[in-house]
Design a protein around this nucleic acid. Structure first.
Length: 191
DNA sequence: TAGGCCATCTGGTCCT
DNA sequence: AGGACCAGATGGCCTA
């Protein structure tokens, strides 16, 4: 954008404008830092962690969306997906690089996650994604466990999938689902 | 080296 | 008036 022509303004007005602009720049910087901080927080809640470089902003948002999608499907079907199903849901709309990383972590063939080979992994339960379509018990309750499905730690030098230390093991994962089932039963949710 | 990603600056718009 | 938010522009860094 071209800067506004201030040549006709008196020096005091130019100074005032500059001061305002410098202050606004500082606020904008702080605002963007806040946004980045929120994205960092979000990165801690999605199931993929990278060693050398964090997921980009856009990929973080996409993966978070897919992760929510995967969790919703699990809760609604009360079934734990296979690694391929899980990977397929998480990979939806991700870049090729992130998809490859995901495939590597979940130990599935990257080709199986390509858009061309897309098929509905949960075809026996065609589920809506919009929250307004979720069971009513979802709107006022949260999962009873702070545990989350296995998270995977990506290291380019060690491509095999390795759950991060502070994540839950599969047993806890299953317990979480049992608790979810109980809570749904408690709140009248029957799949 | 091209393309992706990022931080920063900037002016416009809306709101308080 | 001033702050928050937004989107466009720009330049730097990094990676495939």
């Amino acid at each position: 954008m071209r800067p506004t022509d201030t040549s006709n303004f008196p020096p005091t007005e130019i100074t005032k404008r500059r001061v305002r602009r410098v202050k606004a720049n500082g606020r904008e910087r702080a605002r963007m830092h806040g946004l980045n901080h929120a994205l960092d927080n979000l990165r801690e809640y999605i199931p993929i962690t990278t060693q050398h470089q964090k997921l980009s902003k856009i990929e973080t948002l996409r993966l978070a969306r897919n992760y929510i999608d995967a969790l919703q499907r699990m809760l609604q079907t009360n079934e734990q997906p296979s690694p391929l199903e899980y990977a397929h849901t998480l990979a939806n709309g991700l870049s090729q690089t992130t998809t490859n990383m995901l495939a590597n972590l979940l130990q599935v063939q990257p080709r199986q996650l390509l858009p061309q080979s897309h098929f509905d992994m949960f075809s026996h339960h065609s589920l809506p994604l919009h929250p307004s379509h979720a069971p009513s018990s979802f709107s006022s309750t949260s999962p009873t466990s702070s545990c989350s499905p296995p998270q995977y730690y990506y290291s380019p030098n060690q491509p095999s999938a390795a759950p991060v230390q502070n994540s839950c093991d599969l047993t806890q994962y299953q317990q979480m689902f049992q608790q979810n089932q109980q809570s749904h039963h408690h709140f009248g949710y029957s799949p």
